[in-house]
């Protein structure tokens, strides 16, 4: 009787999780393994299976001598800076918004707007706003007397920074909302105890607020860093990786290699590298969290 009941429970469990598991197996796990195998061959998917040639780790060796890939990887590393900057600004806004402001809900909607807007639409606007010669931003800069206005997205020195500013602008809303919720979860008596000890505003922020927020910061850091490696839509629509690959990232290089240059095996090697690197960074953060995250 008991075993039959347990068996029934197991069956219903699998019925409930079944659709998701099958979907993930077919659409994620199997492709992941296939990708690892594909990274070891020289092949282009148009030419048929018979043309597939096993090359071992050759693709990975080529990868580390590929200037475009190395540039893209470097850009990905620079993009990481977006995460702490976004978190810092969001935290600042969240602390102000949390209790010292009228119309809090209106502000939440305003700051969240870039997050919900389509990248394609947003990119179209920024392309125009940042246009070197007739964009409103440069008009404004010239009108206040700036002599050499930057060419923003069209300038190899400023393009990546421009992309990063837009990324921060898009991500603040999400970080902000999570920080506000976390701030509201901090027990009041902690602040009261600090008051009794005569702690000042900065002291309270440093010794109560920040430690209490650390699990949230950890969550935002981990998901934010994974997010910077996934930024494809914005790059594809805004800059196409240019000018001169100055804004190319791994995922964009991968897309071009796989679907424009049709190098299936080589693109798969990039994918494997990306996967390992993201897992490695996530692991580093898990290992490092003991030092600064309080649960």
């Amino acid at each position: 009787m008991v075993t039959q009941k347990r068996w029934l429970e197991t069956v219903s469990g699998y019925i409930f999780i079944g659709p998701l598991l099958i979907g993930i197996m077919v659409l994620t796990v199997i492709p992941m393994m296939a990708g690892i195998l594909l990274s070891l061959v020289n092949w282009n998917f148009v030419s048929g299976l018979s043309q597939m040639k096993f090359v071992g780790l050759q693709n990975f060796v080529t990868l580390f001598h590929d200037d475009v890939f190395l540039k893209s990887f470097g850009n990905n590393i620079v993009l990481l800076a977006v995460v702490p900057v976004t978190m810092l600004l969001s935290l600042l806004l969240a602390v102000i918004l949390n209790n010292k402001v009228y119309w809090k809900d209106v502000f939440k909607v305003i700051y969240f707007m870039p997050y919900i807007s389509s990248v394609v639409a947003v990119a179209a606007v920024w392309q125009v706003l940042l246009h070197p010669s007739y964009g409103p931003v440069n008009h404004f800069l010239q009108s206040i007397g700036v002599q050499n206005v930057p060419k923003w997205l069209a300038d190899t020195h400023y393009s990546l920074v421009s992309v990063m500013m837009i990324m921060v602008w898009m991500q603040i809303g999400f970080n902000l909302i999570i920080y506000i919720a976390a701030l509201q979860n901090i027990p009041r008596d902690l602040y009261e105890a600090a008051d009794i000890d005569g702690a000042g505003v900065w002291h309270k922020f440093r010794n109560v607020t920040l430690p209490m927020l650390s699990p949230t910061s950890f969550f935002l850091l981990v998901t934010g860093i994974i997010g910077t490696f996934k930024v494809f839509d914005l790059i594809a629509v805004l800059t196409g990786g240019g000018p001169a690959n100055s804004t190319s990232v791994i995922v964009y290089d991968l897309y071009q290699t796989a679907f424009i240059h049709l190098k299936t095996g080589y693109a798969s090697a990039m994918a494997v590298f990306l996967l390992i690197f993201v897992l490695f960074l996530t692991f580093l953060q898990w290992a490092g969290q003991k030092k600064w995250v309080n649960y």
């Binding site: 999780i17 791994i250 990306l274 996967l275």
Partner: peptide, 30 residues
């Protein structure tokens, strides 16, 4: 409550870390 639940859940969570672009090519072939 069933056996293997936590293990499956962990597997599901791990796949969250996989950037969709990292499996784009095999997905496309599939």
């Amino acid at each position: 409550r069933f056996k293997g639940r936590e293990a499956w859940f962990l597997l599901v969570l791990v796949t969250f870390m996989v950037p969709s672009q990292a499996i784009l090519v095999p997905q496309f072939l599939l």
